[in-house]
């Protein structure tokens, strides 16, 4: 990775690696005092990983504790302060939007050996924001290159419930809703090893948009892929194969020493999540959705992310399924 000196008016001949380390130190000090980054702070973009058509993971360097402390479900506000040329000629072009973390990597010498064990000794702690090109802002992010700078603040919001040994996790995603589901699987496997059963269904529009498949296969006891057009896996929506997972609940899942709790997590388009949560509730399964809404401020100020009488930014994004199903404004397309 070669860091670029953007903005374009920065003097030549500076030590950009030192600049990146300086940014990281500054971030660490700020994070240590508050447990979060309160103001947008630039972090170096180390690597851009192509995932699928229009989907990339932006790997940014952060202090190791920000990776080991991250709770799946939480989100960061991400902003590219530069325009496409690395300059600032269109200062209002980019807005700031919420993204959840799709993957993490950390150094072996970092603070969390559990994570380090399966990352092959990367030299840095990295947060991976998995972004799909869905509009002007996310489109600009997918076109960023290693060496660019991304401004982040966070983490914000609620996270998925903590699982225990002997529990079972059911994960149902649609499209880019794959990101928090992958993190939930990764976190559960890291903390509980084989003592957590993980079954997942991932829905996509078509084969070209499928991503995270091999990583999820490695983490889950079972993985079912669905595509709307049938170009890969089971044709149709993720709700198709879901009864197979739900029918097994309560029958033989309970293992000695565990709570035997089964929890369903879902993330994707709201109409899909509504159908999934309804099926889970009907089957008597505890369930949660990771919500995505227009979320401008992230700090309970603007009030534009209401679901029922709650704010997605601080009462969410992870919200309880039974409660969500009672809200008139849940389950519509946005």
């Amino acid at each position: 990775m070669t860091l670029r000196a953007s903005p374009t008016n920065r003097p030549q001949g500076i030590d950009l690696e030192a600049l990146a380390d300086g940014c990281c130190d500054r971030l660490a000090a700020s994070y240590a005092s508050r447990g979060m980054i309160a103001s947008p702070t630039p972090v170096p973009l180390i690597e851009v990983q192509h995932e699928a058509g229009g989907v990339v993971t932006l790997w940014v360097q952060v202090p190791p504790e920000m990776v080991s402390d991250y709770n799946p479900g939480q989100y960061f506000m991400c902003w590219n302060p530069y325009d496409a040329t690395g300059g600032m000629s269109r200062p209002n072009y980019h807005s700031e939007k919420p993204y959840s973390v799709g993957d993490v990597k950390i150094d072996r010498t970092g603070v969390d050996e559990g994570i380090a064990a399966d990352t092959g000794g990367e030299g840095r702690a990295l947060l991976g924001f998995t972004v799909k090109d869905l509009g002007r802002q996310s489109g600009e992010l997918t076109r960023m290159k290693a060496g660019d700078w991304l401004a982040i603040r966070g983490p914000f919001g609620t996270s998925f419930p903590r699982m225990s040994s002997g529990d079972r996790l059911l994960l149902v995603s649609g499209g880019i809703g794959s990101t928090p589901m992958h993190m939930a699987a990764r976190d559960g496997r890291r903390k509980l090893g084989d003592n957590l059963k993980i079954d997942a269904i991932m829905g996509f529009r078509n084969e070209a948009e499928c991503h995270f498949i091999s990583r999820m296969e490695a983490l889950c006891d079972s993985l079912t892929i669905t595509t709307d057009d049938g170009s890969s896996g089971t044709p149709g929506f993720p709700t198709g194969p879901l009864p197979n997972l739900l029918s097994g609940v309560g029958e033989g899942d309970r293992e000695e020493g565990g709570s035997g709790r089964t929890v369903l997590l879902t993330c994707g388009p709201e109409p899909m999540m509504k159908a999934v949560l309804q099926m889970a509730v009907d089957a008597g399964v505890e369930c949660y959705a990771a919500m995505e809404r227009y979320l401008p401020c992230s700090v309970a100020m603007c009030g534009l992310c209401m679901v029922g009488d709650k704010l997605t930014c601080v009462d969410g994004p992870v919200m309880e399924g039974g409660w969500l199903l009672q809200q008139d404004d849940f389950g519509l397309s946005h």
């Binding site: 506000m77 902003w79 209002n92 072009y93 980019h94 939007k97 603040r153 401008p296 100020m301 603007c302």
Partner: peptide, 9 residues
């Protein structure tokens, strides 16, 4: 709303 960031600490 204006483009973000709209509110920061």
């Amino acid at each position: 709303m204006y483009p973000g960031p709209v509110c920061v600490e």
